[in-house]
Design a protein around this nucleic acid. Structure first.
Lengths: 130, 130
DNA sequence: ACATGTGTACTAGTTGATATAGTACACTGC
DNA sequence: GCAGTGTACTATATCAACTAGTACACATGT
């Protein structure tokens, strides 16, 4: 279901957050869809339930999913992008690092922009918020 | 000299690697320039010398700087971008994450490209390898 | 009422990366 | 020789991430 690399240096819970967000972006998970339960997903991925819960908590904090006690966890119906200066600062910082890396790999301006466009298409990032 | 945030969650040695690479990009450090000695920089930044050394080792591994035993550490004269499939894979993965974040912050395709172009200009990434 | 499945909360312990502290050695240039 | 340089090593402390185990609250179906 989700692609998790146990040996990766990036925390498992962060990988899962990323996987779920991407699944929503490409439409594999639709608004209103029910996510697997914490225990179910944990046993399927052979990961501790606490780790799954941490991912779900993070996604809920970001208003991407919502949980109904006793019923389950669902993809939010109306994701509203909010202005978040702190997140925006982090984004720029991150993009900065990535661009420096790209340059040291020998990519010039146009090849970088081309790569960005290609990845956005793969992810399903369109003109607006669809 | 270099902007290090002791309280940041990203490791100090990685911050320093990033700072030095950016300094080279914008020309503050020129090819052939001598970098501060491990001990000197450590005392100026109030950081342990071992941490500085770790940064220098990483940069040397990436062929960005080179060290001459007993003489000092210098910015490489001829940085040759080499094909590195593993690095390229990491770069794409990283860019992917960043783009997903950008989308969830409400940025559409054009605003993302615009931001990328702006940051590249700030960093001094031009058409080719200058 | 009961059993089951759900999210939630808590404690405890392990592991690995990070950073510090201290010491020692080898090379260069004066 | 001496000062400045990079390098190497051990030991220690700290913190985040992860695992393990347990317990509780709520919703649903029987």
């Amino acid at each position: 279901m989700f692609n998790i690399d146990q040996r990766s240096s990036t925390p498992i819970y962060q990988q899962l957050v990323q996987e779920i967000k991407e699944a929503i972006l490409r439409g594999a998970l639709q608004p209103g869809d029910k996510l697997p339960s914490v225990r179910d997903l944990a046993s399927r991925l052979t990961i501790n339930p606490n780790t799954i819960q941490k991912s779900y908590q993070e996604l809920e904090r970001q208003k991407v999913i919502e949980t109904l006690r006793g019923k389950g966890t669902f993809v939010c119906l109306d994701y509203q992008a909010r202005e978040d200066k702190e997140k925006m600062r982090e984004l720029k910082e991150n993009l900065r690092k990535t661009l420096v890396e790209a340059h040291y790999l020998g990519l010039d301006q146009e090849r970088i922009v081309k790569l960005v466009r290609q990845l956005m298409q793969e992810l399903g990032i369109g003109e607006g918020l669809e």
